[in-house]
């Protein structure tokens, strides 16, 4: 019963009471989750002792700047290319038919053994010519190159021309050069 009023007096006691209520609530929560909290404390202890805590604080504290630096550092053509090539390689791994590659690698190894023998041992042309199974060797080389040539045609549009050929030859070349000691 009275005129319209607009002033509101906030409850003064309520701050103290509010604090009490909040403390009670937290107390109840701590008791309810006693076990998981103990486990958490354990982990935190170990992180703290190893210095990980400090590291994390630094990271979160300067989070924006850190991210900024990271992103800007990576934002250069070289880095982008590396990441891109890395992703491409991973993608292409899926395309390699490693099962079929197995026997080829075996043969590669034998071939390299022969090369090793040649580089470290006898240098007699006549001897090698005599010992070699020419038919098998030629068949191996020719069928490999045949496959490369055919695939090359198919891949013209996608721009992945001669990848396998290059890869294969570079692996072979690399191994040759290593054995020869040209790369040391």
């Amino acid at each position: 019963m009275a005129k319209a009023i607009t002033q509101v007096r906030r409850m003064e006691l309520s701050e103290e009471e509010q604090r009490q209520r909040d403390l009670q609530e937290i107390e109840a929560m701590l008791i309810e989750h006693k076990e998981s909290l103990q486990a958490l404390m354990n982990v935190l202890d170990k992180v703290y002792k190893s210095g990980g805590m400090d590291l994390a604080v630094g990271l979160f504290d300067q989070g924006d700047r850190v991210l900024d630096v990271l992103v800007k550092a990576v934002d250069n053509p070289g880095a982008a290319k590396t990441l891109k090539n890395g992703l491409l390689l991973v993608g292409t791994l899926g395309q390699l038919d490693v099962e079929k590659l197995g026997p080829v690698i075996e043969r590669m190894n034998s071939g390299l053994d022969q090369v090793a023998q040649w580089s470290e041992g006898d240098r007699s042309l006549a001897q090698i010519l005599g010992k070699t199974n020419w038919k098998e060797t030629l068949l191996f080389l020719l069928s490999f190159l045949k496959g490369v040539a055919e695939t090359e045609k198919k891949q013209q549009k996608k721009g992945k021309t001669g990848w396998i050929a290059t890869a294969g030859l570079s692996i072979a070349g690399f191994m040759f050069m290593k054995k020869k000691g040209w790369l040391d």
């Binding site: 009275a2 005129k3 009023i5 002033q7 509101v8 007096r9 906030r10 409850m11 309520s14």
Partner: peptide, 9 residues
Amino acid sequence: REGDTFREA
């Protein structure tokens, strides 16, 4: 209401 102000309760 208490006088000319409102008091939280």
